[in-house]
Structure formats: C-alpha cells, structure tokens
C-alpha cells in the first residue's frame, strides 16, 4: 500500500485533484489544504479516486469539509472513479451519492471536462449506489464488486 499523494491539475473552469495511496488521519491536514486551495481556484473540483487505495472517516471528513466550502462559494466538489474499499466507504456513508454524479444522469456537457480523457470510467457508474439500499445490502462486501478503474 502506498504513501499518500495529492496532485492538482488546473483546467478551464475546473480543477482536478488526483489522490493516490492511503488517506487517513496522518494526512488529514494535507488533504484539507489541497482541497481548500482547489475549491478557491475553480467552481468545479473533480476529485479522482481511481488510484486511491484506502479512505477512512478522516478522509471522508476532508471531502465533506471541502463540499461545504464549495457550497458556500457556489462551487461544487465531485468524486470520480472510486474502486474497491474506497467505493465501499463512500457507499456506506452516503457520500458517494452526495458527491458523485447520480447514475443515469450524465453530467451536463462542458461540466465533465477530462473525465473521459483516456479513461473509460463514466462519472458515477456505481451499480451499488444506483441499486438503493435493501436489508441484505448491509452485508454487501462492495470491495471487489466494482471493476471500474482508472488507467493509472
């Protein structure tokens, strides 16, 4: 499992923050600083989780803080490409639904800049989010259900 890194790429009208490695309490301040700067830099912050190997409630806290900061500025934070245990955490907490593009509802043209840039993973293509909660879903081990992957 890898060391946490956050890379920011500025686009036109958006900022893309790519997280890699493991995101936990040890990197809380770093995550907060990166996301705060991103929210201040553009009206749309795309957080790419495709290479993130671990996310816990500390990381979710950072995402939600950024979400609130964005809302206060009329901006938006959206999460793309979560896989495995990261997708499971977002699903369990409802944060995947809150900050992902709802399945079956493509983001408006011009609002999903480089999501398609070399990757086939559509925003919000999360069958287990679209399927809704059922009693048995509490036992779902979403880890491994989700094969959507970022390229790299």
């Amino acid at each position: 499992m890898g060391h946490f890194e956050a890379r920011t790429d500025k686009g036109t009208g958006h900022v893309r923050v790519t997280l890699t490695g493991e995101c936990d309490l040890a990197v809380r301040d770093e995550l907060h600083a990166v996301l705060t700067a991103a929210v201040r830099a553009a009206p749309l912050v795309i957080v790419d989780l495709g290479a993130l190997e671990f996310l816990d409630s500390s990381g979710v806290h950072g995402l939600i803080v950024a979400h609130h900061e964005a809302q206060a500025r009329g901006a938006r934070v959206t999460l793309v490409n979560p896989t495995g245990a990261v997708a499971a955490v977002l699903d369990l907490t409802g944060v995947g639904s809150l900050l992902g593009t709802p399945a079956g509802e493509p983001a408006p043209a011009g609002q999903r800049p480089d999501v398609a840039g070399g990757e086939s993973a559509p925003v919000g293509k999360r069958p287990d989010v679209a399927g809704g909660e059922s009693a048995s879903s509490r036992h779902r081990t979403a880890v491994g259900d989700e094969q959507t992957r970022a390229g790299g």
Binding site: D56, S57, T93, G94, S97
Partner: peptide, 14 residues
Amino acid sequence: MPAADALRGRGLAI
C-alpha cells in the same frame, strides 16, 4: 450513520 453531509461521527458507524 450520520447524514451524508455531516462533518463527524462516521467512524464507529462504519
């Protein structure tokens, strides 16, 4: 589990 946009309280619920 707290609301999706709540700031805290998720750890033990997870």
